[in-house]
Amino acid sequence: MNTQAVPDVSGEFDFSDAQFKVIAQLAYENFGLDLQPAKRSLVYSRLTRRLRALRLPNFKSYLDLLTGPDGAAEQSEMLSALTTNVTHFFREKHHFDQFRDLILPEAIKSARNGGRVRFWSAGCSAGQEPYSIAMCVLEACPDAARYDIRILATDVDPVILARAKAGLYLSEERDSLPADHKDRMTIAADRPGEFTLVPEVKNLVQFGLLNLVKEWPVRGPFQAIFCRNVAIYFDKLTQARLWSRFAPLLETEGMLFIGHSERISGPAISLFNSTGITSYRRNAQKAEMTSKTEISR
């Protein structure tokens, strides 16, 4: 193995192949991140910021921290540094159009008849996705608070999850909202240049910390699951397992929405039927045949 140290342009830190391999293994085992050698320079540039913030002299000290008895907290910081949390309200609008047209009418009808309605934003980032789902729900059912309707929003990154719970956004982010939503569903925040969502939107969303490559304390069934631009960080095997685990959690005719550059793969292909651009309906017959042992791996 070539362990020659590769400094950055400033010569500030050395970063060997062996050190990169340890970080890549930690990221894969704990979070499912697929850090191939081609991403080494990105890993280096992102993590040097952590070394500076922690006032560490070198990557050896950083690895000692990551692998030490108190390493879990820094591993979460590492994850936050290595992933990109860029999103906006109603991103990939065609998904929300399908959600409104194909899912909400029956879901709202069920709720009004005393049924349980659940939606899941798996990988909710800073919260724009689950809050967009909530706005769709309120648009279709203004009195949603009277019924058993909830949106579960989860993320593996506690830093970004805290931002999502706070629900504070820069004023320019209102531009991605439909015109009528800007007035009815947002309010000015305490700090100038920021806004937040009205309580009716926020109260529909419940946030939780969840690692998609570990066990899920999630039961379902869900009428819709949004898991968009999350699987791009995983290798093909981890992606295939993820899609297969979603299928049994969806209600009959429930839908899965994934990212624009993602595709259902592996055994899960038979568990879903495509309904448009990166949107899928559960194949109920096939999903029921998926063994619990297989989907829990």
Rank of each mutant, 00 (worst) to 15 (best):
S274M: 07
F226K: 00
N211W: 05
A166Y: 04
R150E: 10
E200T: 13
S291W: 05
M135Q: 05
L56N: 03
E262A: 12
A153M: 11
D155I: 11
L42I: 13
I232D: 04
A38R: 14
D101M: 04
K109L: 08
F15T: 00
K214D: 12
D143G: 08
L56D: 02
L35Y: 10
R297V: 14
V9F: 06
E288T: 08
L256W: 10
E77D: 13
R163K: 15
L42K: 02
I103C: 15
Q98L: 15
E129H: 07
I151Y: 11
C124G: 06
K93Y: 09
F96H: 11
P142C: 05
L138T: 05
K214N: 10
C227P: 06
T186S: 09
D34V: 02
A162W: 04
R282L: 15
P221C: 08
L170N: 10
L197N: 00
V9R: 11
T238H: 02
C141M: 10
K292Y: 06
Q25Y: 03
S10E: 13
Y131E: 05
G208L: 07
P69F: 00
W216Q: 11
M255L: 14
C227T: 08
Q239E: 11
V230M: 05
E29C: 00
R245T: 06
V22T: 15
L210D: 02
L54W: 07
T67S: 11
Q128S: 11
T3K: 02
N58R: 01
D70N: 14
S125C: 14
G114L: 06
D157E: 09
I133W: 02
E294A: 15
P7H: 04
T3S: 05
A81W: 09
N58H: 10
V218F: 01
R228H: 04
Q19M: 09
L210Q: 13
V117D: 01
P199M: 09
V201E: 09
A153I: 12
V86H: 15
R46A: 10
S10G: 03
L104M: 15
L212M: 12
G259S: 10
S61W: 02
G68A: 08
G32F: 05
